[in-house]
């Protein structure tokens, strides 16, 4: 399994965010996206997730062009963005369950309860999610990862508003995900959680 991008250029509202950027991730690898604010980390992750079309360049999943065979890629990755996709009127349990059902998770027989337990949310399972704090909402969103066996995780600043214990849970989760031979791409400002490659987006900024 591999996930690669070749000469990707991103233009947003007539501004070149980055140009001719290439990357490659293989089984068991983690790639950090780093760089100053506004250098296009989130845009790159949204391009990887297929939410944003790159202005130029091609993405490959297992050597196959994603724009031509998107079906084999969809469902094989999880995307964690800035927003937590948590519905206040639903309980913690129901919030996770709906994504588990839509993403056909639980292939690895990991129950919703186990996934919640990984982020210490099991005791809040029946609480309406509107009572959760920002950090707990983030934990709930991240628990989507541990309920899946998706090969690739695309994480956009996943440790935002997490406390130390939450960051530790995330680190353990990422470690075991990598040990199972899967891939992680993560935008972060913090020092690396786990050893891995770094892609500095500042190197691809357009200079006249």
């Amino acid at each position: 399994m591999s996930f690669t991008g070749n000469a990707i250029t991103c233009i947003r509202s007539d501004r070149v965010v980055f140009q001719r950027l290439s990357f490659s991730v293989k089984d068991g690898e983690i790639l950090y996206l780093k760089g100053p604010n506004g250098c296009g980390k989130s845009s790159l992750l949204r391009i990887m997730a297929g939410l944003l079309r790159p202005t130029e360049g091609v993405l490959y999943w297992n050597e196959e062009n994603i724009s031509k065979s998107v079906d084999s890629f969809l469902g094989d990755f999880q995307y964690i963005g800035h927003q937590n996709a948590v519905k206040g009127a639903l309980s913690v349990n129901e919030n996770l369950k709906i994504w588990a059902e839509i993403y056909n998770l639980n292939k690895n027989n990991m129950s919703i309860d186990d996934a919640l337990q990984a982020f210490k949310l099991d005791r809040l399972a029946n609480l309406p999610a509107r009572f959760l704090s920002a950090g707990q909402k983030r934990r709930l969103n991240l628990s989507r990862l541990s309920a899946t066996d998706s090969r690739l995780w695309l994480l956009d600043e996943p440790s935002t508003s997490l406390d130390d214990a939450g960051s530790l849970c995330l680190k353990e989760l990422i470690n075991s995900h990598l040990e199972r031979g899967n891939m992680v791409i993560m935008a972060t400002h913090e020092s690396s959680l786990v050893n891995g490659k770094t892609l500095n987006l500042a190197d691809f900024v357009f200079n006249e």
Partner: peptide, 22 residues
């Protein structure tokens, strides 16, 4: 609008199911 604002719409669009069905 509610799904758009809380980010659920992103997850629906990139889910393995056709967006049309959803």
């Amino acid at each position: 609008a509610a799904d758009y604002e809380d980010g659920s719409l992103d997850l629906l669009v990139i889910s393995p199911h056709p967006t049309e069905i959803l």
